[in-house]
Each structure stands twice: as C-alpha cells, then as structure tokens.
Write a protein that binds this DNA or RNA. Structure first.
Lengths: 188, 188, 188, 188
DNA sequence: CATGAATGAGTCTTCATTCAT
DNA sequence: AATGAATGAAGACTCATTCAT
C-alpha cells in the first residue's frame, strides 16, 4: 500500500464524533467533527464513506465496547445472583463513567440512520449478557414471553439507573445496589 | 387571545408534525409539515413562533394526552394493585395504539430542543400516576432513593413493554400482563 | 398570492444561464448563474427546483423561440422552394445572430440531463417546419425512410451552415444560399 | 520513452474512459475511470498527466481510428461515386458498430477541454477523405465556398445517418444507401 | 516506478424565518 | 391576519491532483 490508512486519525474522528453528537445531537456537521478531530473535512470521507456509515460505526463500536466491559471478569463459576450483579454493576458504572458515549447512544438508538443490520450485529455481540438475563428470568414473570423482552427491559432499566447515578455521583453506589435489588425481584 | 382564531388549523399542523416527525425525525422541515397539513408554509409561524415552540407544544400536549388517558377511570377506591394495573394497562395500550405519537416522543425525549421547563410541566401534570407509583414502591427496593427514580424506571419499562406489544399485537395482552407482574415484583 | 413570483427575475436567471453555459459548459455553477443574474443563490431554486429543471427549461424555451422565429412569416401560399428557403434563411440567421444560445443548445443536445419528454415537446412544437421538410422530401432519396430522418438531417445541416456563417459573417449570405442549394438538391 | 512501459494498462484506461464518458458524460471522475480499468487511481496520472490530456488523447485516437477505418480499402482506382460510397458506408458502419465511441466523441466535440491543436491534428489526419469530398463537390452548390464547409456538412450528415442506423439496425443498410443518395445529390 | 491516502475548494440543495403584498 | 416568495448560511459529499511510502 502506498500509505496505509492512519488508524489514529480514524479513532480521532470517532472520538470527536462522540463528543459533538453528545453535545449537539445527530445534526452535528461532518465538517465540525473533522475540525474537532484536527482533520481536513474531505479526509473524514476517506475513513467513512457517508455520515450514515460513521454513525453506524459509532453505534456498533461503542456498543461493543460496553459489552466487552460488561463481560470482563464475568465468570460462569459464580451463581446467577453474583453474575447478574457483576453485569449490572459494570453496565451502570460504564455508563456513569462515559456520559458522552451514553448520550450519543441515546441519540442513535432512536435514529433510523442506524441500520437494522447494525442493530442485529450488536444483539449478536451481546449474546453472553443476554443469555445470562434469560437464564435468571426463566422462571419469573416473563417465563413465557419472547426471550428478547427480558433483555430489552433490563437494558432500559440499566439506562435509567445510569442516568440517576450520573446526576448524583455521591449516591451512585446506593442507586446501583437498590436498582439491582429492584431488577432481581422483577426477574425472578 | 393567546390562541389564533382557527383552532382546526392549529391541530392540523400538530397532527402533521406528529406524523412527519415519526417518519423523518426532528429534521422534518416546517414547510413539509405545513404542506402535509394543507397550510401555507408561512402560516405555520402564526400558530407557532418558532420550530422549537412547535416541538415543545408537541411534546407537552401529547404527554398530557397520554397522562389524561392513563388517569381516566383511575379511582382511589381500589387497592394499590388494582390501581397500578389500571395505570399500566392504559399506559401500554395507549402507546400500542398510537405508534406515531410514541415515535415522535422518543425523538423529542432525547432532543435538547425540548426545554427544561417543558419537561417540568409534564412532570407536574403526571403527579397523580407518579404518586401512585411512589406509594407502591415505598417499602420496596427503592424505598430510600430519590422518589423520581421509581417513576423514571416505570416509565422506561412501560416504553419497552409497549414496543413489544406494538410489534406483536396478537400477544399484546399477554405481554401487558406479564410485564405488569414483572413490575409489581420489582416495586414491592 | 402574498407576493407573485417575479417574472423578470426568472428571465434574468435564464439569460444568465444561457450566457454562462455557452461560456463554461454545463458545469457552470448554479451559484455563478444566480450571481450573474443578480439574484441570491437560494432564490434560483424558487424558480427552478433543480439544476436539471433549469436545464430542461432552457432547452425547451430556446428551442421554442427558434421555432417561432423560423415559422414567423412562413406562409402556405408560396411554393415549396420559397417556403423552404424562408425556413432555411430564418433558421440559419437566428443561429448566426444568437451564438450563445446556439452554443448552449449544442451542450444540452448531447446531455442526458435533458429528458426524453423535453425532447418530445420540442419535436411536437416543430411540427410545422418538420412537415414542410417532409413534403419537400417526399419524392427524393429519403422517400421510403422514417420521416424523422429528413428532419434530423436538415437540422444537422442547418447547424453546420450556421457555424460557418457565424465564423465568417461577411460571407454569411453566400453561405446561406449555397447551403440552401445543397439542401434543395439533396432533398428532391 | 514517451510512453510508459505498460501499454496494456494505458489502453485499458482509454477503454474505460470511453465507456464511462459515454454513460455519464465528461463529468466522469478519473477515479471511476481508473477503477473500471482495474488500475489504482493515482496510476492514471502516470499515463495521462491531467484529465484534459486524457480527454484530448481520447478524442485524437478514436478519431484516428475512425479515419483509418474509413480509408481502409479506399482506392484511387474507382470513380468518385464509388469512392464516396466506400467512404460513406464505412463511416456510418463504424459509427453504428461503436455507439460508445460515438457518444464519447459527441461529448468531446462540444467541449472546450479539447484543444484547438488537437482538432487541427484530426483535420490533418483526415486529409484523404476531406480531399475526396472536396473533389466531388468542386462543381456543385458549394463550389465557391470554403473547402472546409463541404467536409463539415458531410460529417454532420454522417453523424445523423449513423444515429438512425444505430436506432434501427434492421433498416441500417437502407438508411445508409438512401442517405448516400441524399448526399450525392447534394454535393454535385 | 507504483500506489492509494490525503486534500480543500467547490457543488447542488435545504431550510427556518422574514416580510412585501 | 394570511400568504408564499425571498434569503443566505449551512450541509453532505465530490474530485483532480499530489506525494508519502
């Protein structure tokens, strides 16, 4: 190759996009993103053919990051309660620690710029946590429902819990534990 | 005085805005909204001074409609279980029956075009349901947390439950009841 | 109407477009056309929804102008020779007198921005001259061919004759008459 | 020295350029041409210093190809009628058989990217056919005109005749002969 | 020499809002 | 009051050409 694509630049664009979208929403201009990344506006398009492609990449990669973070240290050894607590704790803490990424994801989640295939890829990557939730829920109120339902409910709860943890960092641990108990009671 | 003469036109603009924003997101053009409403583009601004005002009105009025619908038939007479079930049923059914309004609200909920004052007005209007939820939750896992937390968690659950009911109308009743049980277990 | 569209502005845009396209080809920028017309760039699009629409309008209206000019004074009274000479003279003189319009038409004639429907509309408008040519040609070499062929051949000859008349204005009359004789011999 | 090593690549670029320009006009991107030719975009510029140079090369080489094809088999032996018929037949058939090259030439013919020197080179190369036409025309209607006029008129006729032959291949032979008769009558 | 990433000016088009009628 | 034409600053994306590798 004449000159390999600059991986740092790509990441720099992604980081700027996260920041700007968190701040200004999806209407953040590609030129503004490029500028914030210290890259000429035209160059953004050598890394992402369209704005939509950038948005899908953003969604996919940040979701994957969250999933990896959640799965890290998750062991089959412990009981379901312990495993779910691990998942819950890491999930909400990741969100509380990454407010811009969370805000960006919130925008993208309701956008139809994010393709169905992208959402499916995320779902596939989340298989581990999703399975855990379903195992916990298998005898609870949702026992006869679409298995995806439990996962979706947990996700929405995690999101809301994280919101409150972000807003009131001093209470974060308490909120995390209380909402976990709320969740545990709900699922079983 | 506050409201211009033609109430029908105003409503027609609101209806079109709901439809278009559900379909195209917040980037729906005011001219397109006016056209769909059968109103000259300039006239939209005699009803709503700015696009942001239209958006805030949309958010406020539709949320109020939802709240009214939920409260309709809600009586202090019944027990907490009965009352919460009533709330849950009507909430989710309203959403399932009004997909465009739900989609529009989803867009607006993450937008910073919706002012804090507007959100507060909605919260104030929702006092009844919110109080009910807090009463149910007063001895549960959330007993020592910010009272708003319980409300927010319930809202996010309702939203997700409605999603699934919309997608699978034949199972809607089952989903409604199962998620209610899920909620009840969580709150208590 | 609140404010009627300004017909003068429309014409001014068309005139500028003719001039610029003659000078720079179809790649002439809409902003440059607007500027030359003394109109804000955005306003061009209140008169022509897209550049393609402007181009089609240009083609249609200038062709119609040429046709009108050619037909002006054309009378059924005279013989075929006299009528065809009238047509030929006015056709070539219009072209020689309107070099920018001719150059613009030359660009558009080979462009696929000009829609088939536009070309058909021009053909329909040219019925009078086309019929005359076909009448003259009815016993000549083209007698058994697609009637459109005669028309097309005459058009291409007229175009070339006009070229030479433009380039050498002093010989214009001679060229006009000589090429008419050439044409007359060919058709009969 | 003048030509870089890889003659095949050069030709491949030319072929792709013909195809793409026929399809999309002169605005065909150099990168798209290179891609269609299976050549890296930067490499196009080792064969043609600028896009304009590519365009001029295209015009020159394809015109030369046409001229060679027309002259092939043309012998001074036959009479003028026979020679002109030979020229006419091969000219129109080449066009009918090479629609993309014809379309590309049509675009370039009206473009000011093609330099005057290039056009002169083509004219020089076409001396044989041009002389033949002038010989035939020396006592006809054009006898006192710029000798180039006869050549230009014949070229425009050939182009139009070829159009009709392309569109209606079954009638191609008839059209060729009928238009030749048309031409013969005109010139003499 | 070959490559393909990099560039930034330039393209068409959109749009909330204003204001002449 | 009602209308719809007018505006001009953005916006996403393109592209011929260059040059680091």
């Amino acid at each position: 190759m004449a000159r390999p694509k600059n991986e740092e630049r790509r990441q720099s664009i992604i980081d700027s996009a996260i920041r700007l979208i968190a701040r200004e929403g999806l209407s953040a201009a590609t030129a503004a993103i490029a500028k914030e990344a210290g890259v000429p506006n035209g160059s953004l398009f050598t890394y992402f053919a369209t704005k939509a492609e950038l948005l899908n990449t953003l969604y996919l990669e940040v979701k994957q990051e969250l999933i990896s973070f959640v799965e890290d240290g998750l062991s089959d050894a412990g009981g379901e309660h312990e495993q779910l607590l691990h998942l819950w704790t890491r999930w909400t803490h990741w969100g509380a620690a990454n407010p811009e990424k969370r805000q960006m994801l919130a925008q993208l989640s309701v956008s139809d710029e994010v393709l169905e295939t992208t959402r499916e890829a995320v779902l596939a990557a989340a298989q581990g946590p999703v399975n855990l939730v379903q195992r916990v829920a298998r005898q609870g109120a949702l026992r006869n429902q679409d298995p995806a339902l439990a996962g979706a409910l947990v996700e929405s709860l995690a999101d809301t819990a994280t919101d409150f943890m972000s807003r009131d960092p001093e209470q974060a641990e308490q909120i995390c534990l209380a909402t976990f108990e709320f969740l545990w009671n709900a699922l079983r």
